[in-house]
Write a protein that binds this DNA or RNA. Structure first.
Lengths: 219, 219
DNA sequence: GTCTATATCCAGATAGAC
DNA sequence: GTCTATCTGGATATAGAC
């Protein structure tokens, strides 16, 4: 998996080519869907012959893997770069909004990260680790907002994913589900508080700490 | 779209063959995924040559369309056949559970119905109408349970879909998300009641009536 | 309805020359 | 690293005989 090791004397040029290849693949994916990416088409656009791609990528799945890594990295940086409000619950909402805008602006990356749409493809451990870091970050923010029960973390992420996927599959880029984001989080936090005997205390005073993910498995 | 009109003297035999073809296609889809269905493979298993399938189906997409119709019909009958409790909110939960068990036992049908996974395929109006009937039925039940705001219907269906998809993509057939079904509905109904000034009144006394779907578009 | 034969197109991957 | 040439396999769809 992943790109072929370089023994090239001009690693800079080689790296540039590889990035060009990846960028081209993204372009095709945006036009024709992820499954529509073929090595032939990539080579065509990049000005190479199809077999030449094997100097950069060991197989088609390795290309997908590299793309997965890029997508995870992009999501991670976007989401960790956002300025979060001090209130941990408002922070969660802002984080969710940021994540949503990511998949809205990068639907193909979202598809690659969150859906299992390509038949034989599983991300390598290396590429996946970035996605895991993203998840850990989300769990941290939820924890700070008082969502400490792993089951509640599962519920929260599922709700988010449900809203997003309903919106983006039925009315991409629209508002029909998006506008309920805040209401849903309000509903969720009310539910959280309702479970606790001292709801209001738990709200604000939570230390940030890195949890080990809700219950192991990833989204 | 749809199957080719029959001029066959033995329509019963022809119909049987067609059903055999569809059943075979389902079998392949269960083994190799929906995209893995090829006319060659269907023909091979059914004991015909690939071109002979065109006596039953106008194109591959027509095959998918017939499958879509079958899936929608199966879901509709399963979900409308279930014995619902008198309490409209308990009824909604039971309905949701029934829907979930459908996609759990028929993951491929669920994929065809609820995900847009096949590149060039859109269900025909005819096949789709069954799915619309299913949706109308769900909206009716929600309405009876006091979920009358179209926006709330959207929220509810998105939550359900989120739970289901989290469960079935991350841990197919498992319990990790499934066990929160009741809690999530409790949360949702509490949210609904919190919006109304007369929450408890609205709970039980609702007449069943067919609504025109939340806001038009389907899931 | 079913067949053979074929047209046409696409894919991923490898061998070996330069 | 890049090329040509090729292997191997797949697909949908059509023509025309029986």
């Amino acid at each position: 998996m992943s790109v072929t090791p370089s023994t090239d004397p001009r690693p800079a040029g080689r790296q540039a080519r590889l990035e060009e290849i990846l960028a081209t693949a993204w372009g095709i994916a945006e036009e024709q869907g992820l499954a529509g990416v073929s090595l032939h088409e990539v080579a065509r656009r990049v000005g190479l012959r199809q077999p030449s791609l094997y100097a950069y990528v060991d197989s088609k799945n390795c290309l997908y893997d590299a793309m997965f890594g890029q997508a995870a990295q992009a999501l991670l940086t976007q989401v960790t770069t956002v300025d979060l409000p001090d209130d941990p619950r408002q922070a969660v909402v802002v984080m969710a909004r940021s994540m949503w805008s990511f998949v809205r602006e990068n639907p193909v990356k979202g598809q690659l990260l969150f859906e299992r749409t390509i038949p034989g493809f599983e991300p390598s451990a290396e590429s996946y680790s970035v996605a895991v870091r993203y998840q850990g970050w989300v769990v941290d923010k939820l924890f700070a907002a008082g969502v400490t029960d792993p089951g509640d973390v599962d519920i929260c992420t599922a709700l988010m994913a449900g809203l997003i996927s309903a919106q983006e599959t039925n009315e991409p880029g629209g508002e029909r589900w998006f506008r309920h984001l805040e209401a849903v989080f309000g509903m969720f936090f009310a539910y959280i508080d309702g479970k606790s005997s001292t709801p209001t205390v738990a709200r604000k005073e939570r230390a940030t700490s890195h949890a080990t993910g809700p219950e192991g498995a990833p989204s």
